[in-house]
């Protein structure tokens, strides 16, 4: 019922401002975003991520393929947001653009006050190291480094104090239930343990934003559930904003808000 009402108000808005198509589409999208907001902790913090008419085009052979088309979204501090949608809908691309791993073809992104399109490669690296914590589907732990060293790698690149980062790594390992595995190599850990370790690594530099790309995609449902709970805990304990790309409805269900993407656009 609430959705229908929102849509009706948007249609009304469209009729009022039919000359301003762009504004109308934005309004629609905002309405759509609002429509999927779930129940959960009330988010009142300032905007942490803001994309404005964001687009990304890849060149495949001679053809240009639009991965993202005119995406404008906002994510607030402390929010747990899930990007969902079918494969190829552009959700991972959006995640990477927010994380400063790739440059948009058009539009603008502001994360924690940084206008990413204006940052140099070097400054983008610093931004990623300090503001973002990445979690990947395949964990990507260094196989020849023990767990503790794997956890401190982000600190290495951020040139943080050695002792402080060691302490942080130990605490984080404890927080993710791996305190007794610090000396182990990744191959000695289970998939769930590896992903927990990857989350701990992502948290080392106390980022404001965790970007997780299919974090449960390579785990069984029990471990997947544990990871989701861990994200919840991270948000609760550290106040970290969490954005998750997922196909998993269970994960999406845990999010405060689900942003559905389809064909590179935020689905209405």
């Amino acid at each position: 019922m609430a959705q229908r009402q929102t849509l009706a108000s948007a249609q009304h808005f469209l009729k009022l401002h039919d000359n301003d198509l762009e504004a109308a589409i934005n309004a629609l999208k905002e309405a759509a975003a609002a429509s999927v907001r779930k129940a959960g902790p009330k988010v009142t913090g300032p905007v942490l991520v803001s994309t404005d008419h964001l687009s990304k085009t890849y060149k495949v052979g001679r053809q240009h393929v639009a991965a993202l088309k005119d995406v404008s979204i906002q994510i607030h501090e402390g929010e747990f947001v899930a990007f969902t949608g079918p494969s190829g809908s552009g959700k991972s691309t959006l995640l990477q653009l927010i994380g400063g791993l790739d440059k948009p073809s058009g539009g603008n992104i502001v994360v924690d006050g940084h206008e990413l399109t204006k940052l140099s490669d070097r400054k983008l690296s610093v931004f990623r190291g300090r503001t973002i914590g990445f979690v990947f589907q395949f964990f990507y732990l260094q196989p020849f480094l023990n767990l503790k060293t794997n956890l401190v790698v982000p600190g290495i690149f951020a040139r943080t104090n050695r002792k402080a980062r060691d302490t942080a790594a130990e605490k984080l390992a404890g927080a993710v239930g791996l305190a007794d595995r610090l000396a182990h190599l990744p191959k000695e850990l289970s998939g769930g343990q590896m992903q927990r370790a990857a989350i701990a690594r992502a948290l080392l530099n106390q980022p404001k934003l965790i970007l997780a790309d299919e974090p449960t995609g390579n785990l069984d449902s029990a471990n997947g559930q544990a990871i989701i709970e861990l994200f919840e805990q991270v948000r609760r304990d550290f106040g970290t904003t969490v954005v998750v790309v997922t196909h998993d409805p269970k994960v999406a269900a845990h999010a405060d808000r689900e942003i559905v993407l389809k064909d590179g656009e935020v689905a209405v």
Binding site: D121, S125, V126, F134, Y140, V153, F157, N205
Partner: peptide, 16 residues
Amino acid sequence: RRETAVFRAIGAKRLD
């Protein structure tokens, strides 16, 4: 290359 990409994602500069 993949490891490099991961390191870049978690803050490594090209020079690093």
